[in-house]
Design a protein around this nucleic acid. Structure first.
Lengths: 146, 146
DNA sequence: TCTTTTTTAAGAATAATTCTTATACAGGAA
DNA sequence: TTCCTGTATAAGAATTATTCTTAAAAAAGA
């Protein structure tokens, strides 16, 4: 993400809300500011906890609703966890996933190029990497034909 | 995953359980068989529903427990959803994620090679791909030093 | 200002997952 | 086989994450 001042970010935020027909409310500003300033991909609960002292009457539902709205207009993204029910894969060999954002279907695929990726040195040195996969997101064939 | 007969798969399963000090119970066999035969990365609930008619006294907790155990010994994998609370990312630019399997920390990183990946034609033709990311899994620096 | 539409808070409702506890079963030893 | 010990299970309560319902509040438009 490229550096912006707080003010620039706010103007950008305001503009995107307007373009999408969303009112610019104090709650929306606050939620966005916390997320934009966070370093750790917070959950709705964590964002809520950051805000509740300044905003005692804020409800957790508003945080969820706001974040869902932001994700729908592309202002933020949901991390690849998606918060849905956990799902399992019997295939422990290296392979890759396409995930439909609408119906949540996951399609496995193999791809030699993807399986040859070299892990960046910085990470290699600091962490123990046990898995590498490419995750594609989008709309699947079925959801497109509707 | 390479093709195996049901019998071979069962022997392999038995062997892996033994090596990990796990009893081979009818419930474990059944859960593994359903997952291994499934095409769609099912949730615990879906696996449970497949089994409940043959196994009326099976409890959903057993399915969860069994799958968690299998994932811990590396017999199966959890799809990149992980089933934890949903988390959000203010960075909408293409970038990649390292995820710690122990503490769930996510570290963003950029990498020109990863950002240049070419989407396979088959998928490109059938689906609308809106995002591409590389997801690394493993143990982070902090969790390693413990 | 008045009206209409959007947004919110509150708390109930639902869904996903784990915990507690008493019982049942698997595997090894006799 | 039978018995013993530790492991695994069912049942249901408990917890956590998320969404829904509804009435009130705030914003935008006239």
């Amino acid at each position: 993400m490229h550096k912006q001042s707080k003010k620039e970010r706010f103007e950008e935020f305001r503009k995107i809300c307007r373009e999408n027909g969303l009112n610019v409310t104090p709650q929306r500003i606050a939620v966005y500011e916390v997320l934009a300033g966070a370093k750790n991909h917070p959950s709705a609960e964590e964002i809520f906890r950051c805000l509740v002292s300044d905003f005692p009457e804020l409800s957790i539902d508003t945080v969820y609703r706001t974040l869902n709205t932001f994700a729908q207009i592309g202002l933020i993204r949901i991390v690849e966890g998606y918060g849905e029910a956990r799902r399992y894969d019997p295939d422990t060999q290296p392979h890759h996933h396409f995930r439909c954002l609408k119906c949540s279907r996951i399609v496995d695929f193999e791809n030699p190029e993807f399986s040859r990726l070299k892990i960046p040195d910085v990470l290699q040195r600091k962490c123990r990497i046990t898995g590498v996969k490419v995750v594609l997101e989008g709309l699947c064939e079925e959801c497109l034909n509707r």
